[in-house]
Write a protein that binds this DNA or RNA. Structure first.
Lengths: 195, 195
DNA sequence: CGCCCACTAGATAGAACGATCTAGTGCCGA
DNA sequence: TCGGCACTAGATCGTTCTATCTAGTGGGCG
């Protein structure tokens, strides 16, 4: 067990720490301790240091979270219901983890937006991949491409914003309300109503 | 000029740094330098250290931002138009500051949500005051109290989420799209349509 | 005038930060 | 069997962090 892929353990632990405490709040020392690794290992696998580790973690977390979203949203009877399920599922995870686990890249995105171009670009790429991925689900449900992109942006902004309020208040109220309205907006688009 | 209220200068500078770089990203040294103050001054006015300074800055910024929102939203011909104006105004400010100035407390809120109870409570109080304040504008426009609160939550989550995407992408697209849909939701409530 | 206290000034402590370095371990193929 | 290389181990460097400390300065009030 101690030998099992050190690089993988570092990535997993860092992803968890970033999600909970952000980039500046996650020290290399804590990463090394939690991953049962050493400084040598970190700089062997990530010669670019903390920044390179950060970029790889963001990419990885971004892809995993998109896959989760696609599974839940695409797995429901219709996309509007799927969107609703995703918000409620996120609320449940947040509550069960003591309001620790929300979006895996949001905190980092805000922290580095104006201080680290490489990391900022990584977070921008992740959000764009989410917009494209969720938008594809909407077009597959019969919504026009341009409108599907707009809807995807609205749904993603809603959940990101709801995470902020819910984590601060330690309440799932924001996620529940935002989920209701996001689902309604998607339903209206399915019904062909213009915004 | 150097004598003019040192405490005020510290608060102003810290508010600006928090907004742009977050709590962990804003060092006391940088605060002291930018405010043309000294460590002694900071610990004289804020004996509780960085945490106390943070709490006061959050309260202050939260109140100022609410007043700005109330002015813009309440100053339009109707609240739906006001909401739209606020999103577009925020987009303009963001663009003009090189994607630096978004929400004054959002970054800090995410950073401290799981690490500092006093600061977390301060951010929660600010968000709650926003919900109450914006909700009051909606009830004044003829919307029922319960629905007004839900609408306020949705509008605030929308703008917070849009700030995340817009700062990361260095584009105002998210703010514009979220603003359009947020205004539409408020308009629907004014028209008496259920979500 | 002269004292007092709010405030300034900046050196310094002590811990944590990211990063680098030299040794050393152990597996794998020739 | 042995050489090489991927990887581990952890001491250490210089910096930065928050916080504290002593020594002052200066303006208003008795």
């Amino acid at each position: 067990m101690a030998k099992a892929d050190t690089k993988e353990r570092i990535l997993e632990v860092t992803a968890e720490l970033f999600q909970r405490y952000g980039y500046n709040g996650s020290g290399l020392k804590q990463i090394v301790t939690n991953a049962n690794a050493t400084f040598g290992s970190v700089y062997h696998f990530f010669p670019g240091g903390k920044q390179q580790l950060g970029v790889e973690v963001l990419r990885r977390s971004g892809q995993m979270y998109l896959e989760l979203a696609e599974t839940i949203v695409g797995g429901a009877s219709d996309v509007a219901t799927g969107v609703r399920h995703f918000f409620l599922g996120a609320a449940e995870v947040l509550r069960q983890t003591g309001y620790l686990d929300a979006c895996p890249i949001e905190t980092v995105a805000l922290e580095v937006a104006s201080t680290n171009e490489a990391l900022r670009q990584a977070t921008a790429d992740v959000f764009e991949s989410w917009i494209t991925g969720i938008g594809a689900l909407f077009t597959a449900a019969g919504i026009g491409e341009e409108k599907a992109r707009d809807l995807a942006i609205v749904v993603i902004t809603a959940i990101e914003g709801a995470f902020v309020l819910s984590r601060a208040a330690r309440t799932t109220e924001a996620l529940e309300r935002a989920g209701t309205y996001a689902a309604a907006i998607v339903q209206a688009a399915l019904d062909g109503i213009e915004p």
